[in-house]
């Protein structure tokens, strides 16, 4: 290990004297680790939704509902208010100049613009 790295103390030691179970014992090398965790969404579905009474506050039911106001539409490229939507790319745009611009965009960029507001086409 380079002396600079050692001096900076940036690496975590593999064993710590204050631990009762060392990481190496917990996750032995060679044994396939696999994925030992699940996404939060799945964990929530598995745990709280079924076991908790619905009137008690829990992680899921304290979420805010959607806004009571209709969502405002903004131009995907410039951020200005967008009265129009391009029927081909589904991008929102503010004025004809932006329209010309988005018609020249390659498909990849169109999808990236859509992905910003979570509206991209996702193939599963």
């Amino acid at each position: 290990m380079e002396s600079e790295v050692v001096r900076a103390e940036m690496l975590l030691a593999p064993t710590m004297a204050f631990k009762k179970v060392q990481t190496a014992d917990k996750y032995p090398k060679g044994q396939s680790r696999g994925r030992q965790w699940k996404h939060l969404r799945h964990l929530l579905q598995a745990a709280d939704a079924t076991s908790l009474p619905p009137d008690r506050p829990n992680y899921l039911n304290i979420q805010s509902p959607p806004s009571i106001y209709p969502p405002k539409r903004y131009c995907d490229v410039t951020g200005f208010e967008a009265p129009y939507m391009d029927p081909r790319t589904k991008l929102r745009y503010a004025d004809p100049e932006v329209f010309r611009q988005i018609r020249m965009l390659p498909e990849e960029y169109v999808q990236r613009y859509l992905a910003v507001r979570n509206a991209a086409v996702v193939l599963r």
Partner: peptide, 19 residues
């Protein structure tokens, strides 16, 4: 204030107070 801008369909922080 407008989570809809990034596709999150929830109320913004000002509206959360009223909720």
């Amino acid at each position: 204030f407008q989570p809809g801008m990034i596709g999150v369909d929830q109320a913004g922080i000002d509206e959360m107070v009223s909720i």
